[in-house]
Amino acid sequence: MRLQTSSSIALFAVLELAANPAHQLSALEIAEKYGISAHHLAKVLRGLGRAGIVDAVRGVGGGYQLIANPKRLTLFDVIQVFEPIGSRAAPESSRTVLTDASAALDLVLAELDQHAIATFRSITVSTMLKLMARRASSRQQSSRPARQAAARR
């Protein structure tokens, strides 16, 4: 499964803001860290602002901050601002000729959609931060023996 670029960018921005709750981050800072277009990110942040997920703080030292509760905000809440999840624009059965094959295919695609929705709805921004921390810690642990071996050499 692939997310649209806007959804991915929105998730990166939300995670970055959630990981830095005490700071306001500019679109440029986030864009540089993730190697994404600052112009596209600014557009995405405006969308997140309209959805009540982030807020822009104007003036010197201003930037964006997360205003939604990261323990309650799910991946689904962020993604659905930019693309429909689980409501396929053109189901097979909407074709002019409705066949048993297209109806059966709809059933299978609906099953995939339901799994995607359940997954995105059940993972909060806080859980994502924990996943990222676990990943970083296991990366450090796996690189430690290699560093130690290099130091012994």
Binding site: I117, A118, R121, S122, I123, T127, R134
Partner: peptide
């Protein structure tokens, strides 16, 4: 699948 609250709890436990 619809039990989002408890699903989120277990997800938060890793």
């Amino acid at each position: 699948r619809e039990n989002h609250l408890v699903l989120s709890f277990f997800r938060s436990q890793g």
